[in-house]
Structure formats: C-alpha cells, structure tokens
Write a protein that binds this DNA or RNA. Structure first.
Length: 492
RNA sequence: CGGGAGGUAGUUCAGCCCGGUAGAAUACCUGGUUUGGGACCAGGGGGUCGCAGGUUCGAAUCCUGUCCUCCCGACCA
C-alpha cells in the first residue's frame, strides 16, 4: 500500500479512482467494464442493502427473484423500453462450447448449439416481470402487487468507471401493480421518499427530489421521479429513480384485471431502483485527500481501537481494559474492531483506517491506562480528544451520531451554496464553468431547447424539483416564456 | 466506438529509441531491536516483461494481432 492518493485539487477523477482502489472497495477485473467488489466494499453495500431492504419491507413490499435471461421476443414487447435499451444489451446466442478441432486445449462456440431464440441479459426486468404478472393478476383482489428483487443487471457501457458506470452492477428493482392511477402515482412518490430518506439519513447525502424531463425520462415510463445529489466537484449524480409506468407495460403485456363492478381494465404500474452507484455517490460526497470518510450508519467498521504498547505486559493490561469496552460496545450494537495485530505499528494503522474511512478511532497506551483515559479521533474533522475510560462507551454512540449529523450538514451546506439562480445566458455558462453545481434557470419547456443547451454546455436538466414554486420568466436560451425554474448541472 | 497514454516483482516505476544473462524503491520472508502518526539493522525469496504470433543466432526492446486499464470525445433510459 503506497502512502498517498492523488489530491482532489490535482485531479478529481484520479483521486476517485485511487480512493476506491486504496480503500479496497473494489478492483478492476479481467472482464472489460466489470469490477470486483472487494470484501470491504461489499460490507458497505450489505449495510446499505440491509437498511433499504428493511425500509421496503416496512412499506409492505416482499422480495422475489426473476430470471437473468429475457427472451428477445419478450424484451421487445414494450417498444419504447426495448428501443431505449437496445444499444446496450448483451445477448446470449449459443448454449454450448466444444473443443477446437484446430487448436488443442482451446474451445470454440459450437455452431450446432445456436439458440432458437436469442436471450437478452436483463438490463432491467420489466419485460420478464410483466409477462409473469399477467399470470398473477385476474381481479382487483390480486392487487396491489408490491414486489422487489435484488439482482445484477448488465448494460454494455462504452466508457466505464468504478461503481459509477460498469457493464454489470448490483441493484434492487421494485415492480408494483395497482388498480388505479392514483394509487400507482402514490406508490411512485412513496418510494421516492423512501430513497430520499435512506440517502439523506443513512448516507448523509442531501438530495433534491424532482421529476425528469421527457428527454431524461425512463423509456416506457409516463413520469420518472428522481433524487439528485451533488458531488464535491460540483457535478450532479442521479442517486435513485422511481417511475410511474402508467398502463404502458400492462397494455404491452395484456395485463388486465376485473374491478369491483366486474369491468376489465389495464393494471397501473411502477418501478423503482437504486444501485451500487450509490457507493460512488457516498465516496464523492464526503471523502478527502486522506481517503474515504464514511457515515457511521453505513460504515462496516464504526470504531477501531488501536493499542499502543511496549512489551507483552503493557499489551495484556491494555487487552484487559479494551476487551471489556469492546464487549460493551458490541452489546450496544456498535460495529467495533480491536486491531491488536502486531504486524503493523500504530502510525501505520492510523493511516490505514483513515484511508478506509472508519468514523472513530480510539487509541490507548500505557500512559492513558495510568490516567484512565483514551484518545478518541474523529475521521471527519481529524479532531482528537482525551476521554475518560469510565465514560467512553457512553460517549462513543454520541460521537457517532454527531459525525453522522455533521457529515450531512456539511454536504447540505455545500449543496445549498451550489444552487445558483441565473437569468442570462452569459451567467449560465459562467456559473457552470467556474462555480459549478446546480443552476436554477428558466427553460421554455421544449426538448429541442434542452438538447441545444446540452450541446453547448454539456449541462442537462437534472430535474424539475417537486413543489417547485411557480415563477414567470424567460428561457435562458430562447427567451421564450417559462413558468418555473428548473435545475441544470453537468452530471455523472 | 474514434483519438491519446499505459501494461515489466504484491505495488509504484526505470530499462525499450540503439536487440546480447531483468533492475530500483517499497511490500513480503527470517532474526534482532522497536511501538503515542505509515520504525530500524542484517540476511533472504520473488518477474516465461499483459497475451498470441512473426523477424532474428538471440526479443522486455523491432513488426503484426489481440486483451485489460486510464484520459479526452461520441454514447449513457
């Protein structure tokens, strides 16, 4: 492990890559565009997944699992959705290899084993799920269906980045079916709230809830709701989406139900998802030039304890005291690690756990023991203080809660300071280039203008915020009338 | 997918132009001294130079192909 990562000021992209690798969140693999999530990174994902999963269950959802493969004929049933994804689909065409007659020890695709129908590897599961729901739904009594699945999906991206965009990634996708339009919209909004709640309160990343413009909308949806977060370099990142699918999929897959009056109608649908991309958001929202900074609620290790000693005698005295503290903290539900390995010296451990973003470090040596204290160091502020051993197990949960809150506050202050209202094109370009962040500007509401702005500035409309105040103005580009400001930004 | 850069010890890199027994730092192993911010001394092990072909008496080095990564662009519901 080398001693430093590229600084953010020097090269933000390189900083991010260095950090993900050196904090051991992930590794590159032999497969183009696919990464290995390492145990530490996966532990982080498990914490996020478990918290989300509980929130889904608490809102009445159940988990299920659908196939990885989607027959091409099913995939293409909902045309808009199929077209939207067509360019990035991986396809299975054969089901067997055989020994290469010309090269010993090599295998070739067996031309005899061509599939009658190609299988598309899911880029999302609407098709296979709605094909299944058709069989599950006859009457309003079968509704709503509130199913979620944790799965991998494949989107053949041309340009990839660890966690932010990879060819294969892990996510959850919720797919619900409802009897009424209003109920489906309520579900779409409810799950957006769940996402916002999770990202803000667990990941300590503030988000803006909004609706996508038609250009940015999920193919096959009537409305796409999103939560948008802001990274430290001033670029926006879509952290989650919730789609109101209307009756598009029900009509495409012919999913009808009888209502109370025995009238047949198409089912109303939603789908919603967040992915391992959230880990990228987490890294870029909080971390610094010394490494990762993790919010306590999702950190794999919340407290690390490092002993400082000379000789076995001191070590066992420290062990004695620390073991009791560890036990007490574990009983309080705190994820604590006592790193008493003699393989590395304290200074090395300090740097290592800072790189890995452990929120709190407790260092304890013979001198501390004599005085009945230990040193507590916060990862977020680098602040150190001496704490009485009698009080330390009471103080640690309070410190963790404070770190969680301060990380959010810091990100929130930064985010709010980077929402800039502008009223002229010159200002618009200037803010995007220098200050960065979200730019609140008037837009004439046409896809053409949105596209033109994107071509000129690389900024896209991230969302139209929910509860956006009405305000009469003139479009930043065309000068045509506009009824509200929308949020532009350059985005990941 | 287009342009550029790169792949040599676990890691970071030198060597390549101009072909001739594969190097450094760090990490690792052994022993000892150490331990309050990435310790020190001594000794030691480790690389078919991304992979596959070709040229050559001889290839890390030259040529061709291919795979993976990074940067810029196109693309990204």
């Amino acid at each position: 492990m080398s001693k430093a990562i590229t600084s953010r000021a020097q090269d933000y992209s390189q900083w991010y890559n260095d950090l993900v690798l050196k904090a051991e969140l992930a590794d590159y693999s032999a497969v183009r565009g696919c990464m290995v999530i390492k145990p530490y990174g996966f532990a982080l994902w498990e914490n996020m997944r478990d918290a989300l999963d509980k929130m889904f269950k608490d809102t009445g959802h159940v988990n299920a699992y659908f196939p990885l493969f989607v027959p091409k004929s099913l995939f293409e049933v909902e045309e808009k959705n199929a077209e939207g994804f067509a360019k990035e689909c991986a396809i299975v065409t054969h089901y067997r290899l055989k020994a290469d007659p010309n090269q010993k020890g090599k295998l070739i695709v067996d031309p005899e084993a061509k599939l009658e129908e190609e299988l598309v590897i899911r880029s999302t599961s609407e098709a296979i799920i709605w094909n299944t729901y058709k069989n599950w739904i006859q009457s309003y009594r079968d509704l709503p269906i509130l199913v979620n699945q944790w799965a991998n999906v494949v989107r053949w991206e041309m340009r990839t980045r660890l966690f932010l965009r990879t060819a294969e990634f892990l996510w959850q996708e919720g797919h619900t079916a409802h009897a009424t339009r209003a109920e489906a919209i309520a579900e779409t909004e409810r799950m957006l709230d769940v996402y916002a709640d999770f990202v803000e309160n667990w990941m300590a990343v503030p988000v803006i809830k909004g609706i996508k413009t038609p250009n940015e909308r999920f193919a096959g949806a009537e409305d796409t709701y999103c939560i948008e977060a802001l990274m430290q370099d001033g670029k926006a990142l879509q952290a989650g989406t919730s789609h109101f699918l209307g009756q598009n999929f029900a009509k495409a897959f012919d999913v009808k139900f009888s209502d109370r009056e025995n009238k047949l109608d198409y089912v109303w649908a939603t789908s919603w998802g967040v992915s391992t991309r959230l880990i990228g958001a987490l890294v870029m929202a909080h971390s610094d030039d010394d490494g990762l900074i993790l919010p306590p609620r999702v950190a794999p290790i919340q407290v690390v304890i490092v002993p400082i000693y000379k000789g076995e005698k001191q070590k066992s005295a420290i062990d004695n005291k620390v073991n009791a503290i560890v036990k007490e903290l574990k009983n309080a539900g705190i994820r604590v690690k006592y790193d008493d390995s003699d393989q590395a010296r304290p200074g090395w451990k300090f740097a290592e756990y800072e790189m890995k973003g452990v929120p709190l470090r407790m260092a304890i040596g013979a001198r501390d023991l004599e005085q009945g204290v230990a040193e507590l160091a916060r990862r977020d502020t680098k602040e150190k203080k001496s704490v009485s051993l009698d009080k330390i197990t009471a103080i640690i949960p309070l410190e963790l809660a404070d770190i969680q809150q301060q990380l959010f506050d810091r990100a929130h202050t930064f985010r709010n300071a980077h929402i800039t209202p502008v009223d002229s094109w010159e200002e618009f370009v200037k803010v995007l280039d220098s200050k960065t962040g979200f730019v609140a500007a008037h837009w004439d509401g046409t896809p053409e203008t949105e596209e033109a702005i994107k071509e000129k500035t690389k900024a896209t409309i991230r969302c139209i915020p929910l509860n956006n105040p009405a305000e009469i103005g003139a479009c930043i580009l065309t000068g045509k009338p506009s009824a509200q400001r929308v949020l532009f930004a350059r985005a990941y």
